[in-house]
Amino acid sequence: EFTQISGYVNAFGSQRGSVLTVKVENDEGWTLVEEDFDRADYGSDPEFVAEVSSYLKRNGGIKDLTKVL
């Protein structure tokens, strides 16, 4: 089950073990991109978060400006 990723309007994530599946949706709710990120592939949590965040930004993730990150 996908849940909204904090700080984004149209990005959602689903966690299974160490694998986080993220997706970005358009205004109609269609999935634009979907990608798996395995936490085990990264040396640290900040590196993992930075990679996921960068992916979302590159692929149309819209920041939720009503929330302070």
Rank of each mutant, 00 (worst) to 15 (best):
L20N: 00
G61E: 01
E47S: 04
A11I: 03
T31Q: 05
R58N: 10
E47C: 09
S18P: 03
V33E: 05
N10K: 05
G43Y: 08
E34W: 12
T31H: 04
V22W: 02
N10Q: 04
G43D: 11
Y55R: 02
Y8G: 06
R58A: 11
N10P: 00
E25Q: 14
T21A: 03
E25C: 15
F37Q: 01
Y8H: 06
V52Q: 01
G61I: 06
D38I: 02
V19L: 05
E51A: 15
Y55E: 02
F12K: 06
N10G: 02
V49M: 14
Q4V: 11
G61A: 15
R16I: 06
G7K: 04
R39C: 07
E25R: 13
D45Q: 07
T31M: 06
D64W: 09
V68G: 12
R16T: 07
S6G: 08
S18M: 06
V52R: 00
K57G: 09
D27M: 11
N59T: 04
S53Y: 14
F48H: 00
K57A: 13
E51P: 00
R39Q: 03
D64T: 09
I62T: 05
V22T: 00
T21G: 00
K63Y: 13
E34G: 04
F12L: 03
T21D: 00
E35D: 07
Y42L: 01
A40W: 07
Q4D: 04
F12A: 01
N26Y: 05
E51L: 07
E28F: 11
A50S: 09
F2W: 15
S53F: 13
R16S: 06
N26C: 09
E35I: 12
E47P: 01
F37I: 02
G29R: 04
T31S: 07
K57M: 12
N10H: 07
F2M: 07
Y42N: 01
Y55V: 01
T66M: 10
V68E: 14
D64K: 08
D64C: 15
V68K: 09
S53H: 14
F37N: 00
F48N: 00
S18G: 07
G13K: 10
T21H: 11
R16Y: 06
E35N: 10
W30N: 11
T21P: 01
Y8E: 03
S6W: 13
L20Q: 01
G43W: 06
G29D: 03
L32E: 05
T3W: 13
G61F: 05
Y42D: 00
E1P: 10
V33I: 09
Q4S: 07
A50L: 09
Y8V: 05
R39H: 04
D38H: 03
Q4A: 11
